[in-house]
Amino acid sequence: MISSLLYVPGNAPRFLEKAGQRGADVVIIDLEDAVPENAKSEARDGLAKWVPEIKKGGCQVYVRVNQSDRLLDDAIAAVTANADALYIPKVSSVDSLVHLAEGLSGHEADRHPIGFVPLIEDMKGLLDVRTIAHGPRVFALTSGGEDLATAMGAKPTPEVLRYPKLMIHYAAKEAGLLSFGLLRTTVDFADKAAIRAAALEARDFGFDGATCIHPSVVPILNECFAPTAEEVEWARKVVSASRQEAAAGRGAFMLDGQFVDAPIVTRAENLLRRSEKGRAAT
């Protein structure tokens, strides 16, 4: 269960040294947008130190790599440091994932192949997102709202980005992947009420978690994307009642005045599995 993913600049030791203590499910060491051009090589070299250091806190570590001529070198450094996954920006076709997987194959002899999280950030990627979702090593999808809006010549408002984000989300769910993101991004991390509302909305739509750039947002995401105690109690009642009704030869039934059939039972079972994964992670 991955509810919170905290971005940390790869060239900022004062943030990196505490990143594993922030309570995030995943720390994303960013080698791309957060790192100036003249510090990118140093940030990449720092993965050997920071990935294992951050993982001591019990979270996973992903690395957001650069595209173009830095992509493979960044990815190899992440593999060598034993990162859990790559956050890959500006993925516009599945071919780039195939080539990257091939380029990494000779560097992973002693470990499980590193996973991929493509960021969909342009129109070609958006329109090819279903193919990308079925690419090699892909286990999750997410969007890059600012880049998507720029590619459209639009402003990055919730109204502009809602449909593109949902397209990416639907592609993830069709492929059985995790889906990370918020439908209405809140840039003001001090506005806790707005962040909470955005996270709850995203969870209602089936998103699994979201990224953030400030540690104060992490507990909000962890809380909002996790099943509540009331939801877990409801799910247990539904599953228990379903078993009893099935034993009596009934597939649909009434429970507390509500009609329950197979899709609702499946939803309850999924919620319980998510709850169990959350407990196991802690």
Results as ranks from 00 to 15, higher is better:
residue 127 L to E: 13
residue 194 A to I: 07
residue 130 R to W: 02
residue 120 I to G: 02
residue 100 L to Y: 12
residue 163 Y to M: 14
residue 156 P to E: 06
residue 155 K to Y: 11
residue 66 N to H: 06
residue 238 V to I: 14
residue 249 G to S: 12
residue 237 K to Q: 12
residue 202 A to I: 04
residue 166 L to A: 10
residue 130 R to P: 00
residue 251 G to P: 11
residue 87 Y to D: 10
residue 136 P to C: 10
residue 37 E to H: 12
residue 211 T to H: 09
residue 71 L to A: 14
residue 144 G to Y: 00
residue 131 T to I: 03
residue 256 D to V: 04
residue 59 C to P: 06
residue 91 V to T: 09
residue 188 D to K: 11
residue 172 A to W: 01
residue 181 G to E: 02
residue 282 T to G: 13
residue 246 A to L: 14
residue 133 A to T: 02
residue 213 I to C: 05
residue 205 F to K: 09
residue 160 V to F: 02
residue 40 K to Y: 07
residue 119 L to F: 10
residue 171 A to I: 03
residue 91 V to R: 04
residue 142 T to C: 11
residue 20 G to P: 03
residue 167 M to C: 15
residue 13 P to T: 06
residue 64 R to W: 04
residue 62 Y to G: 09
residue 104 L to H: 08
residue 139 F to T: 07
residue 264 I to R: 12
residue 115 G to H: 09
residue 191 D to S: 13
residue 30 D to V: 02
residue 277 K to F: 06
residue 282 T to C: 04
residue 243 R to G: 14
residue 204 D to V: 07
residue 121 E to S: 12
residue 105 S to C: 05
residue 104 L to P: 06
residue 196 R to F: 01
residue 168 I to E: 01
residue 273 R to V: 12
residue 202 A to F: 05
residue 3 S to K: 13
residue 199 A to D: 08
residue 263 P to M: 13
